[in-house]
């Protein structure tokens, strides 16, 4: 009897501990966002967004970095999307269970775990040096595209997997070829899921700093890029640069730029979750 009461007590204690842990992370995140808002919200105005970088904190803006981020994001999407979706379609719909498919699978799972800075080293050697792209928007985009490729492939495969087999059977029974089935049935049916994965992958890319520093993206770029071969900076690198400056004005700038970066990341995540919920309902 005594034991039973003790067990009950332990059970209740763990419940409270569990709630505490669950809220701990969220509370810390909230404290942290609150802190950043206090530090940076007053600094955000139209000029901050439109100004070029400057040695004087109160005159500096994020225009070139923001434009750089947008350039990189667009090019990364253009490169990673077709390759990632095609690879996923091959693995999920075409490949038979053999040695090659096992190797591909193990390999993709491994790539997903390679630290992002290693992709930076790859990009530095292959794109910047061997292919002579220099520290350009294009080199950065290729690097990030390779980085998010495994995420795009894995999430696209999940989305294809969720399409009921009956739809494939029905399409084949109507005399459709494999590609016709993929193109007319499976891709439309899994569109929501694929989109979710891609947005999440891009939200990861927009926050990446280390690989772009390694390929030589600069903290100080006087102009926004006007072509894919131009030098560039991105928002996270601008933030990193401001954090490492001693003057207090730059801390304020960093906080303000973080607010904008977080806004972009959270909006992208929100959109992704919205699509996921909408799409999951379709199959349940």
């Amino acid at each position: 009897m005594n034991n039973i009461r003790k067990n009950r007590l332990k059970d209740q204690a763990f419940k409270i501990w569990g709630i505490f842990c669950t809220l701990l992370g969220l509370v810390l995140l909230a404290v942290f966002i609150g802190n950043i808002l206090v530090d940076g919200i007053m600094r955000i105005d139209w000029e901050f967004v439109m100004n070029l970088p400057s040695r004087k904190p109160e005159k500096a803006g994020i225009y070139t970095a923001l434009m750089g981020s947008i350039w990189v994001l667009l090019l990364t999407t253009l490169i990673a999307l077709p390759v990632g979706i095609a690879a996923a379609i091959y693995l999920e719909e075409y490949s038979k269970k053999n040695k090659l498919s096992t190797i591909l699978e193990v390999n993709i799972s491994n790539l997903a775990g390679v630290p992002s800075i290693i992709y930076g080293l790859l990009g530095l050697e292959v794109f910047v040096r061997i292919l002579e792209m220099g520290a350009s928007v294009l080199a950065g985009s290729f690097t990030l595209a390779l980085l998010i490729l495994p995420i795009v492939i894995v999430s696209t495969r999940e989305a294809l997997k969720a399409v009921p087999k009956s739809i494939r059977d029905a399409s084949f029974a109507m005399g459709a070829s494999k590609w016709q089935t993929v193109y007319h049935q499976l891709l439309p049916a899994s569109f929501g899921g694929i989109l979710t994965g891609i947005i999440l992958a891009l939200s990861r890319a927009v926050g990446e700093t280390a690989p772009l520093i390694v390929i030589g993206a600069l903290a100080y770029v006087p102009f926004a890029p006007s072509s894919a071969m131009d030098e560039f900076s991105v928002l996270p690198i601008q933030i990193f640069n401001w954090i490492t400056r001693p003057q207090h004005g730059f801390v304020e700038n960093a906080a303000a730029a973080i607010i904008i970066l977080l806004l972009i990341t959270f909006v992208m995540n929100g959109i992704a979750v919205y699509f996921r919920n909408k799409w999951q309902k379709k199959f349940k």
Binding site: G25, I36, L200, G207, P236, T265, F266
Partner: peptide, 8 residues
């Protein structure tokens, strides 16, 4: 928590 950029 995992979506917040690491520089942040």
């Amino acid at each position: 928590l995992a979506a917040v950029p690491t520089v942040v």
